[in-house]
Design a protein around this nucleic acid. Structure first.
Lengths: 264, 264
DNA sequence: CCCGTCCGGTTGTATAGACGACTGGACATA
DNA sequence: TATGTCCAGTCGTCTATACAACCGGACGGG
């Protein structure tokens, strides 16, 4: 029930709802608000912090959308009982992911040059037929042991002179953001279970026919334009895919009720 | 720019923002609003449909959160260029998923009984040490060919008499919802790449050591209480894992600016 | 031609208030 | 006891308004 711990800075550029959300979020992390506990109501937050109810509501809703809480009409908003220490749904570059896990990322560059792409790449990146792409093929290592072989394809049009500007063992996402203002926003990923070919096994330092993941990932800018297509092979013994799935019952129910009520 | 096609029913129980969202959503699906196109602004929707700007805004925001659109401050809201016919992150039961794909779901029941669970199940379902679970082990088939072997564990406490009430070749999620009021809301899933054991290969009708996915999935109710723990083995040649990842730059940037501004 | 200024349009944030729907408990009634 | 009614608290929806931040084009000055 205590909102007192949250202090607002009304001069800050950080929105009020965000400050409130951060404060509550911190209270959940610290255990001050325990899983299952009733959170302060919208009115209570509004009254104690001197904001309007809609602002308080926006803070609570963003906690809900992040999965930290859930609301029940007529009852209140409660802290979720789910663990969420994982980076569900977070799109991280290899470097970022290794850093989050406390491992040392390293790369061995196998290729870094301009090529004429294959059909799958053309389709994934929405390229014109004759358009060239930059290929970066690397063996990526965590703590000195190979983790995956990764082939990245970028439309040459969007990052001219990348071959000269980019040190290919570094963080590609950072270079795209800093040098070209290209911010990756989301990605679609398809994973298959497979076994390593002889060549792959050699690069990954595993036995032939060891289990591996094959990923195909297409990354997009904020406006939906494809910016990157990656094919990668991960060692099955060093990698898991973690997902969070949601069941969107609301949509299904509501849309059917719209239909029932006469098509608009 | 045309909002005229959307007609609101102010007597309906369906919220206005939802009716608007459905209308716009339909215009996107039908191609009337093309990828990359500028959507009607909040003000325009508000004026044309006679609702307040906040209501129009809520409709647009929900389109954004569903990935159908994106907003740019000072410019407008645009239709996303991303394809999204896939059920990204949608938690579907096996029966629902097969139906969506136009396949005929079938099951062969291997076991359906009460057991004392192993440690992994106890931990995943947050059980008391002596608590029993209902085990349902099935070979699941699509179009008459085996797709996976699935072992579902449910806390017996939450669905008493399920052994008597449920026809184990049917849809479990429907039974849980209709008979016990238990609605699955979300699930965490871990996938590993592996190869089939001899017994698994026999059930799946593949060669031994064929590539397979191993899934471990924990499903939760709306309040975060675990309701189901599933271990399943999918044939690698008949199954892909499709994901959508998002890059939450906003949070990272904002939270760091909060820190910079003095931890208040 | 280049550059800065201004301005209209757009989204982001915030306020204040209103009503409806639902929950759970207190209370009164049969 | 069992049942129904009322009520305070809460979230869901909706309105009306205001200002800030930002984008892009028009315009004008150099």
């Amino acid at each position: 029930m205590r909102v007192g711990a949250v202090v607002l800075d009304r001069q800050s550029v950080v929105p009020l709802y965000y400050q409130i959300q951060q404060g509550l979020s911190e209270q959940i992390r610290s255990g001050e608000l325990k899983p299952g506990a009733l959170m302060p109501s919208e009115q209570e937050i509004a009254a104690r912090l001197g904001v309007s109810r809609m602002t308080a509501r926006q803070a609570l809703k963003s906690l809900c959308s992040r999965g930290l809480a859930f609301s029940q009409r007529g009852r209140g908003t409660f802290v979720s009982r789910m663990k969420l220490e994982k980076n569900f749904r977070q799109l991280l570059s290899f470097s970022e992911e290794m850093k989050d896990r406390g491992s040392q990322p390293r790369s061995r560059v196998l290729a870094f040059r301009k090529i004429h792409p294959g059909e799958d790449v053309v389709e994934a990146l929405h390229l014109n037929p004759a358009e060239e792409v930059i290929l970066l093929r690397r063996v990526r290592m965590a703590d000195s042991a190979p983790l995956c072989v990764e082939a990245t394809h970028l439309p040459a049009r969007l990052c001219p002179d990348l071959l000269e500007n980019f040190e290919p063992s570094g963080s590609l996402y950072r270079a795209l953001a800093e040098q070209y203002g290209l911010q990756v926003h989301m990605a679609d990923e398809v994973a298959e279970a497979s076994i390593a070919t002889e060549a792959e096994a050699k690069l990954l330092r595993v036995r032939e026919k060891s289990p591996v993941f094959r990923f195909m990932r297409t990354a997009y800018l904020h406006n939906g334009q494809p910016i990157e297509f990656v094919k990668s092979i991960y060692r099955g013994d060093r990698c898991r895919v973690v997902n969070r799935l949601t069941r969107q019952l609301e949509n299904r129910q509501l849309s059917s009720s719209v239909l029932v009520q006469g098509g608009g």
